[in-house]
Computed example of a mutant assay.
Amino acid sequence: MSLDDLADDVQQTADDLETATFHLDAEARTELAMLAAAMDNDDPSVLIERAIHALFQQTVDAGKLDFHLRANYDVTYDEYLSGMTYDEMTGGSTYPTDDGDRRYQF
């Protein structure tokens, strides 16, 4: 898989989520109700959005997102954000790898 595959999968899933509905088990429903009551929030969807943001940030900060992206797509989140791989950023894919054609010789 590649950066393009990841971008396509993210776009497809985002499109699919436009009309998605979710089922909450009893525990999640009770926890969401408790949070809504405690935070005096009448719209539980706002709490769900905040929970997704918190989980995403925690996953990024812990390095778990990069781990899974590298395993499944051979890219990192930074590469996804920039739209190019580290090799493309550094020019590693544009220079010959043959020792006789190295750009710099030490």
Rank of each mutant, 00 (worst) to 15 (best):
M1G: 12
M1T: 09
L3W: 04
D4G: 09
A7C: 08
Q11V: 07
D15M: 11
L17P: 14
E18L: 12
T19I: 07
A20S: 09
H23N: 08
H23M: 04
A28L: 10
E31W: 06
A33I: 06
A33K: 13
M34A: 13
M34E: 15
M34V: 11
A36Y: 08
A37K: 15
M39Y: 00
M39K: 11
M39S: 14
L47M: 02
L47N: 00
I48N: 01
R50N: 08
A51D: 00
I52L: 08
I52D: 00
I52R: 04
I52N: 01
A54K: 05
L55K: 00
L55G: 06
L55W: 02
F56M: 04
V60A: 02
A62P: 01
K64E: 06
K64H: 05
L65I: 09
L65Q: 07
D66S: 05
H68G: 06
L69M: 14
L69D: 02
A71M: 11
V75T: 04
V75W: 00
T76R: 01
T76C: 09
Y77P: 04
Y77S: 09
D78Q: 14
E79C: 09
L81P: 00
T85C: 03
T85V: 02
M89N: 10
T90L: 08
G91I: 03
G92Y: 03
P96N: 09
P96Q: 05
T97R: 13
T97S: 13
D98S: 10
D99S: 11
G100V: 05
D101K: 14
Y104R: 12
